[in-house]
């Protein structure tokens, strides 16, 4: 330890500490970053509806009312459809973890996909609404160029040109789309959760949605051409990186060059 302490004023110490801190941060992010969950499709039958109602009564009814007609703390779920339940519960936004400006995505949903399917079947039985999309539209394989164009016109203003998310008003935000499954992206467009508007199948056809999902998959899988992408947030963080880290290193180098060796 004393050897370390003796060298704490060494010119390279700042650089080493900086690199160490960046490595730790990056490592922590890699470990803690949310992982995507894959899931099977929902199918409905009366047994599922009954089981879903039981789950609903014990987990959701305190806010949404015992008949899902809405309560003081939650909206009515009549007619929101299975897609809405699959999105909200499947991404861990519901049951709500804590009150706030918007429900946040959880790393792990609180129910298994089988339970989510039961809940979705129950809510779908209350009134017609959008169903869970078939997997042919949610697994990619569409026209990436068309999807990119549609994404830039309809989605990029909130979710950023590369789907990395962005800020809305009063602490609300459009989340990153990088680790969201194609099914959940489709369901979000279909149902318009929270601040997001609805993009129904007459606005963006199922094929359009498939193209958008394929574009997002491509952005995520495309290897970086020139090193770290700094989160793909655009010119502001990139400029900030250049002004703080880049110029910091230059100043450090200038100070080192100007120092006498003895």
């Amino acid at each position: 330890m004393s050897a370390l302490a003796a060298r704490r004023r060494h010119p390279a110490a700042l650089l080493i500490v900086l690199i160490f801190a960046m490595a730790v941060l990056g490592g922590l992010y890699a470990v803690l970053a949310p992982k995507s969950a894959d899931a099977a499709e929902a199918t409905a039958n009366s047994g599922q509806i009954t089981a879903g109602r039981q789950l609903f009564i014990s987990n959701c009814a305190s806010c949404h009312g015992s008949n899902a007609a809405g309560g003081p703390a939650g909206p009515s779920l009549v007619g929101v459809g299975a897609a809405s339940v699959d999105f909200q519960v499947g991404t861990g936004r519901m049951p709500l973890q804590q009150p706030g400006v918007q429900a946040q995505r959880a790393n792990k949903p609180q129910f298994t996909q089988a339970e989510i399917n039961q809940l979705a079947a129950y809510v779908a039985s209350l009134g017609t609404g959008p169903a869970v999309p078939p997997s042919q539209y949610t697994n990619g394989g569409g026209n990436i160029a068309k999807g990119g164009e549609l994404f830039r016109v309809n989605c990029a203003m909130c979710h950023n040109f590369a789907g990395s998310g962005g800020a809305l008003t009063r602490g609300k935000y459009a989340p990153s789309l990088m680790d969201v499954s194609g099914k959940h992206v489709y369901e979000a467009m279909l149902t318009g959760p929270q601040s997001m508007p609805v993009f129904n199948d007459t606005n963006l056809s199922p094929q359009d949605k498939k193209d958008i999902i394929s574009y997002l998959k491509n952005v995520k899988e495309e290897p970086s051409q020139g090193g770290h992408n700094l989160g793909l947030f655009g010119p502001v963080p990139e400029g900030m990186f250049a002004w703080t880290i880049g110029i910091g290193i230059l100043i450090g180098a200038a100070v080192w060059l100007g120092r006498k060796a003895a």
Binding site: A23, G26, A30, E221, P223, S224, Q225, G226, G227, H228
Partner: peptide
């Protein structure tokens, strides 16, 4: 060729 690097993730091996 694509290589996966720590901190950066997948990137073009030639450029790296």
């Amino acid at each position: 060729d694509v290589v996966t690097l720590p901190l950066i993730g997948p990137m073009k091996a030639l450029h790296a």
